[in-house]
Design a binder for these strands. Sequence first.
DNA 1: TAGTTTTGCTATAAAAATAATAGCATTGTG
DNA 2: CACAATGCTATTATTTTTATAGCAAAACTA
Lengths: 115, 115
Amino acid sequence: MKTPKPGQPVRGSKTGQPIMALLDLLGRGWAMGIIWHLHNGPSTFRGLQDYCESISPNTLNTRIKELRDCNLIKRTMEGYALTEYGEELFELLQPMGSWARYKWTESFKNDNSEE
Amino acid sequence: MKTPKPGQPVRGSKTGQPIMALLDLLGRGWAMGIIWHLHNGPSTFRGLQDYCESISPNTLNTRIKELRDCNLIKRTMEGYALTEYGEELFELLQPMGSWARYKWTESFKNDNSEE
DNA sequence: TAGTTTTGCTATAAAAATAATAGCATTGTG
DNA sequence: CACAATGCTATTATTTTTATAGCAAAACTA
């Protein structure tokens, strides 16, 4: 799949509106998970693989390439790590953590369709 | 694919950590795009289809089911619309719009690998 | 009230993405 | 030098997603 970048056609926007490029990028399997994990510090390829539990090396590799091409992660001597842009994006993602935990979860209470 | 809910096994977390369930849910094609679009007001099935440009009705339909099961969107007489939880989530997503536009896009300047 | 649209969606088949698994070349270590 | 860890590639099987057609029900319209 083509790496979505602002200004170029992406899913949801033929003109490549930046937000649409970003949503396209982050809307791919594991992309946000990788960013989330890397905030805890650099991680090796295999470290990421373990973290993601069921990701295949192919997918991890393409995801890494995309995120690198989009300036969100980079290689360091300690493994893959967030770039300054990646850190900024994480800051925007972070609030979703407590929202999910404290608010969203509540919405499932007295919800019988547990399956 | 099974709808990811907090407390149940999801991609990235066997115990169903809420944030992981959320990232799993939002990390599926078009999920965030649908939420983003619905913030402009209710939209019909076909309206969403047009907005997403290249989504197939099958995918749109499963995505809608998932988002409804997760209490983020609902059906109204004017079409599909965000729930109060959906609105809350949108508020968290919104800052990504300007970040993408004003900061992320900058990171691509003097980047010759335009392809 | 008999057409015509619009809407929400299903069916089917093809294409694309992802997973599962094995394994290899390189680097570092004892 | 043996040995383990790392960053992948290759291959095949599964799962998702697209693409396209089309239908039944509801909502106009003449």
